[in-house]
């Protein structure tokens, strides 16, 4: 994954590249194929947070102080999600995708870039409501192990619950969201039985491979942080992971339009960004 298009005219940019090279070589997290505008913005915040004058100084700290990289990783990985974010997406899964999924005796669902697990819990609730949960295995993957720990815990701030509840209702929820969590000490803890069929694991769309045969892959607001090459790689992984006629869901402003693999998918629900892998690819 190269970024040859960045002209090395500015010292800042040179230092940024060197920092990303160092992180890739030492920590095996490769951000060099990410959207640079966004990486730069986040690293400039990190530079301030770690009281560094330059990216070179930040690099020195990242390489020599063991505590710095895990904290830096939190800056580099975007973690913004909600339960049932974009309710229309979940409504389309419920109304249009579920009827197809019912025809399979067993199901595998992959949430790629699951962050703190909001989307995995959303799908687990939806699948329970639709009577599909017992035949489904869910995989929630992310590169941020701290986020995965939060996902395992399934605990969210109580103040986020009204939004989650409203989203769930607008997504066509057939039960009350309050059936699935218990509130205590300012936090809502989601029913651990929702994740008994879920595997949360560390997986990188940059460097790792396919690990199973899926009927549904949901990867929303992840591809926008990648450059074109990396977007091609990630969608290639999804294509290889999906069964024929399997489903791929993207974020509301993402599409396969500029992607190398766009021909391998057909639009299934255009507005909700649901694609179906073609039967012949």
């Amino acid at each position: 994954m190269t970024d040859d298009h960045i002209p090395p005219t500015k010292v800042d940019d040179v230092e940024l590249r060197l920092l990303l090279d160092a992180i890739a070589q030492v920590y095996h997290y490769d951000f060099r194929g990410y959207s640079m505008a966004s990486v730069k913005r986040r690293l400039s915040h990190a530079k301030e947070r770690f009281a560094c004058r330059s990216y070179s100084q930040l690099q020195d700290r990242v390489l020599h102080e063991p505590d710095v990289f895990p904290a830096l990783l939190a800056f580099l990985t975007v973690q913004v999600s909600e339960l049932f974010r974009d309710p229309a997406y979940f409504r389309a899964i419920r109304e249009k995708v579920v009827p197809h999924l019912r025809t399979y005796p067993s199901l595998k669902v992959w949430v790629a870039g699951c962050s703190a697990g909001e989307e995995v819990y959303s799908l687990a609730i939806l699948f329970r409501e639709e009577g599909l949960e017992d035949r489904t295995l869910f995989y929630g993957t992310d590169i941020n192990t701290e986020a995965l720990r939060k996902a395992e815990a399934g605990v969210y701030e109580l103040e986020r619950i009204p939004l989650f509840t409203e989203n769930h209702r607008r997504a066509g929820g057939k039960s009350s969201l309050s059936d699935y969590y218990t509130a205590a000490y300012g936090a809502a803890r989601f029913d651990p039985s929702l994740r008994k069929r879920t595997v949360f694991s560390d997986h990188s769309l940059v460097s790792d491979q396919v690990f199973g045969e899926m009927q549904l892959v949901s990867c929303r607001n992840v591809l926008i942080y990648f450059d074109r090459n990396l977007q091609d790689r990630a969608v290639g992984l999804f294509k290889d992971a999906l069964v024929r006629k399997g489903f791929l869901g993207l974020g509301s402003k993402e599409s396969l339009r500029f992607n190398k693999h766009s021909e391998d998918f057909s639009e299934f629900a255009r507005d909700e960004k649901l694609y179906q892998k073609r039967g012949d690819s």
């Binding site: 960045i6 640079m36 505008a37 974020g251 402003k253």
Partner: peptide
């Protein structure tokens, strides 16, 4: 930097 638009939900 290469003159493309990009979106972010940060």
């Amino acid at each position: 930097p290469d003159g493309r638009a990009s979106l972010s939900s940060e």
